[in-house]
Nucleic acid binder design. Structure first.
Lengths: 359, 359
DNA sequence: TTCGGGTGACTAAGCGCTTTGGCATATACT
DNA sequence: AGTATATGCCAAAGCGCTTAGTCACCCGAA
């Protein structure tokens, strides 16, 4: 079957421990011997059995990733980032999806601990993960990416919501907007609070007030519904920071329906940059991109550091602005039809797929 | 530290092998002893070390999932399905993302084989995965979910594209449409061929012809551009099957811009149901939903069966129609939904997989 | 009373790897 | 020459678990 370390040792005329030391670069081995072993290993294409190694070492070089809701739009980018960080160090990740279910979540936690994961990344909510893990006598690091954590048992890596709010403000300010509003979700959500605080802070710096804040929910329907209230409260509004892209799109459409041109009359900044993820397009919506991949990558990197005993970097991840037509318009002055704008932005590359021969 | 089987054995006053047999339900153990061991195990909250077990057994109860492009819209649903199937049997999955890079892909294959995966699921392209795995002396099952495979080394589980095309046809027929067209991507793509064949077959059954077929690419831009040609070729077109949702929304918008009302004048059916995935919305677009989660689940189930030595089910996965306003009308939100659909479709990558071409 | 068979536990060996400790041999020094 | 020191390798033990093989025991049958 597979090539074992014993095979290499035999072929190289050394003992198994010596071969082991060569493979790990530990212990004292003569250069000449080392080379011989390495040559033989390469010759035989020796591939160490990571499982056995893990048992001997007591470390699996595997981390568990627990997604609260894998189907959600925010999970994949974070997951990709986590994996990128891990694979750079030959770690692998076991993925579990809790599907918002406490029982499932607990099962998965037990399961990953049974598999001796060295650490845990939680993507999304994951309440009580740290507690549950502790109850199972888990003593590895736990890091939450993009979800609240339970200090002091776990740490978290998050997008910088405050900075994101500030970016949104600066985008509007850069377009010369003065009558500013914020349409967002419930004020009880920490991310909502942070974004709003950052938004206000950046406006303050410029000596401009946020005149209206409407709290609702993170849906397109709310964005649409908010338009009327917004116009009633601030008829000459010329810049809106929407709490997420759903709100932004709903609001934009509803404003257009009421005769306000976007961005000529009202500039709109969204949040999350969902449209921008995964492909290069010139989108309609200007949106704050929280760089979720980077959040995942940082979370993974933090875990790597923690496994080495170091204190990793868990600074919030700086967002970016993804410019779109909803604040910067187009070169010409003509009315921006939402659909037309979207269609104009269609720059998807052609399909260049060829089926493999003979399949 | 953790509780070992030895701890349980000692506390129960038996030897380790006896305890092992109790935990596995193997061997002959007196009922009284069995009960005592189990009680002690529960008492101590014994959790077997899956790693050590794997080494002893030579099976890791872990499967490797290799995504060709995790960031793509089609990956996550499949992945979720795979995981669902696996977790039902206490298997876990190691996730790797090849990112379209052959070198990365090969690295990941080696890596997962090093970790002694019992089987492999490939999501998306994954050319040569089977070959590479074989070269590494891998002898476990390999199943491709939603991507071409290399028979006879691997098997594939795919959405039923033919049936999907037929569904689209029946949706249009059910709405009484007679002047039918199909706007799709390049005829060299197997999925395009299958969908078209299914579409034509179902139309034939009703004695209706597909009068125009336009081949382009899987983009919104092509959908938009196709409108003019479509109207030139078939001015009184009243039903269109679009090859994917991107084409559908582009076409819908362009038709609306030319004064054709959707669906009053022209009904449109898309494919992939990207808008419907992951969130509850009242969609604009009627779309064929290929049930990618189910594809993943079936692929996982197939692997499970293969690991047991059985021949699993690899029949194509039947699609469904996800009804929307573009064929069945209704909804003041229609235009708004179109906007959203466009936003979403901005992230939809082209379909690049092979249908079950008799494999 | 002895023998065969069934029962229920155990000892031994093995999975593939790692680490510790010790023993030769070679080199350096008085 | 004889002691110290360094070098290179290996035997042994260990990780936590599993399986195969063995053995003591108790029973009923002859």
């Amino acid at each position: 079957m597979a090539v074992r370390l014993a095979d290499v040792a035999r072929a190289a005329g050394v003992s198994v421990p010596t071969a082991s030391q060569v493979m790990n670069g530990t212990g004292r081995v003569a250069d000449e011997t080392r080379k011989r072993v390495l040559d033989v290993a390469k010759e035989l294409d020796y591939r160490p059995n990571a499982l056995a190694r893990s048992v001997a070492l007591g470390r699996s070089r595997t981390i568990g990733v627990l997604a609260e809701n894998a189907a959600g739009a925010f999970c994949m980018p974070v997951l990709i980032g986590v994996n990128r960080a891990l694979s750079s160090q030959d770690l692998a990740s076991l993925l579990f999806d809790a599907r918002h279910d406490p029982a499932t979540r607990r099962d998965h936690i037990r399961h990953m601990l049974d598999r001796q994961v060295d650490g845990i990344v939680v993507i999304g909510e994951g309440p009580d993960v740290a507690i549950a893990a502790l109850e199972e006598r888990f003593d590895g690091p736990i890091v939450h990416a993009f979800g609240p954590h339970d200090p002091p048992h776990a740490v978290g890596v998050y997008p910088d919501e405050f900075a994101g709010g500030a970016l949104a403000a600066r985008e509007l300010l850069a377009q010369g907007r003065k009558r500013i509003a914020h349409v967002t979700a419930g004020a009880d959500l920490p991310s909502v609070k942070e974004r709003e605080a950052g938004f206000r802070a950046a406006l303050d710096e410029a000596g401009i007030r946020c005149e209206v804040v409407l709290h609702g929910e993170f849906t397109r329907a709310w964005g649409q519904a908010s338009a009327e209230r917004l116009l009633a409260a601030l008829p000459d509004v010329d810049g809106v920071f929407a709490g997420n892209d759903g709100i932004a799109v709903g609001l934009a459409a509803a404003l257009e329906a009421r005769g306000r041109r976007v961005p000529a009359d009202v500039a709109i900044v969204g949040y999350d940059n969902v449209a921008g993820y995964g492909e290069d397009t010139k989108p309609y919506l200007t949106s704050v991109d929280p760089h979720l991949e980077l959040v995942g990558e940082r979370a993974g990197a933090y875990l790597l550091a923690a496994l080495e005993g170091d204190e990793g970097d868990r600074a919030p991840v700086a967002p970016d602005i993804a410019p779109g037509a909803s604040t910067r318009g187009e070169g010409d002055d003509r009315r921006l039809d939402l659909v037309e704008a979207l269609l104009r932005s269609a720059t998807a590359p052609p399909v260049t797929y060829l089926p493999p021969a003979g399949s």
